[in-house]
Each structure stands twice: as structure tokens, then as C-alpha cells.
């Protein structure tokens, strides 16, 4: 039995609560994709024309560095990869690579933007979800910035 892509989308926690017509609209932008271990989902600097919802697998967000890429965050089942499709100039700022076999749904950026322009209710629903996602990632980033497990900073006294 094959599952329709509309059903797959509806199962994603990320799209929970969207109306049937909204889901149907998005379905038109969606396709199933699959990445082997080590295969990039997105590349830093390239045009951001899509985003992914991971159905199953694990993806590493990376920044390139002289000594090799540094993993900033790993994402797993149900997580969304990428929001640069929503933000101008629609260019990937980080890379993402599959850490193992990864199945995902790809949503076309241009298509999604068009749907949102046509239906502002849908646009607002998605924006709320992306705002939540961005704030969650920002909070995590701030915690990482605090470097709470680091050796004691050179402030105050030492013993």
C-alpha cells in the first residue's frame, strides 16, 4: 500500500492543524526525496529553492571551516531543514548533509511562496510555524554561545 504525499504531509507534526484545503495546496509543492549517508541536502551559498521535512533519518547542519566542516546541529525525524527559501535573498547560509539514509519531503520554495501570496491565511499559518522554529533554533544557539560547559572564564577569582 502506498501512502499519498498528502497523507505523509498530514502526518508531520509540523503541518498539524492545517486545514484540508491548505494541505492540498501545499501538496502541490511537495515531493518525496531520499538521501544516502554523506549526501548533501543543501549546500552553503547555493540558491535556496526548497526546504525539507525529515520523515526518517538524521541530518547535520554544517558550516565549512579550514579544518573541515563543523557540525552546528543535528536534526532528526519530524524536524524541518532550511528556512532560507522564505527569507531573501533565498541563499543557503549553511550546508546540510545526511548522516545516514534519510527520507524526507521536499517542498519547493518558489511554489510555497506563491501559495502563501495567494492565500494569506496559509501564509500566516506557515509563518507562525517558521517563527516558532526560528525562535527555538535561536534559543538553542544562544545556549550554545554561552558555552556553559567551558573551562572557567577569566572573570572573578580563581582557586
Amino acid at each position: 500500500m502506498t501512502t499519498s504525499i498528502e497523507q505523509l504531509l498530514a502526518e508531520q507534526p509540523y503541518f498539524k492543524g492545517l486545514s484540508a484545503s491548505q494541505l492540498a495546496a501545499i501538496t502541490g509543492c511537495a515531493k518525496n526525496v531520499r538521501f544516502e549517508a554523506g549526501e548533501p541536502l543543501i549546500r552553503e551559498g547555493e540558491d535556496a529553492n526548497e526546504f525539507f521535512v525529515i520523515r526518517q533519518g538524521k541530518v547535520a547542519l554544517e558550516a565549512s571551516a579550514p579544518a573541515g566542516p563543523i557540525t552546528i546541529q543535528t536534526l532528526g525525524d519530524g524536524d524541518v531543514v532550511g528556512w532560507s527559501w522564505l527569507v531573501q535573498p533565498h541563499t543557503w547560509r549553511f550546508g546540510a548533509i545526511a548522516m545516514g539514509l534519510t527520507r524526507a519531503i521536499s517542498l519547493d520554495g518558489e511554489c510555497m511562496r506563491r501559495k502563501c501570496e495567494e492565500d494569506h491565511d496559509l501564509g500566516f499559518e506557515l509563518l507562525k510555524r517558521f517563527s516558532f522554529l526560528i525562535s527555538e533554533r535561536l534559543e538553542a544557539t544562544r545556549l550554545q554561545l554561552l558555552d556553559v560547559y567551558s573551562p572557567p572564564p577569566a572573570r572573578g577569582l580563581r582557586r
Binding site: 554544517e62 557540525t71 538553542a140 560547559y149
Partner: peptide
């Protein structure tokens, strides 16, 4: 187990533990 930062040879999770 999750770490705040890692290179590619770490196959575990990267990110804050609260997440």
C-alpha cells in the same frame, strides 16, 4: 548524548541538551 559542537567524525547528536 548531544554535544554543543563537533566535527564530521562525530556521528552522534549536535545541539543543546534541552532540545
Amino acid at each position: 548524548v548531544t554535544v554543543d559542537r563537533a566535527s564530521r567524525d562525530w556521528h552522534g547528536d549536535v545541539g543543546v541538551v534541552t532540545a
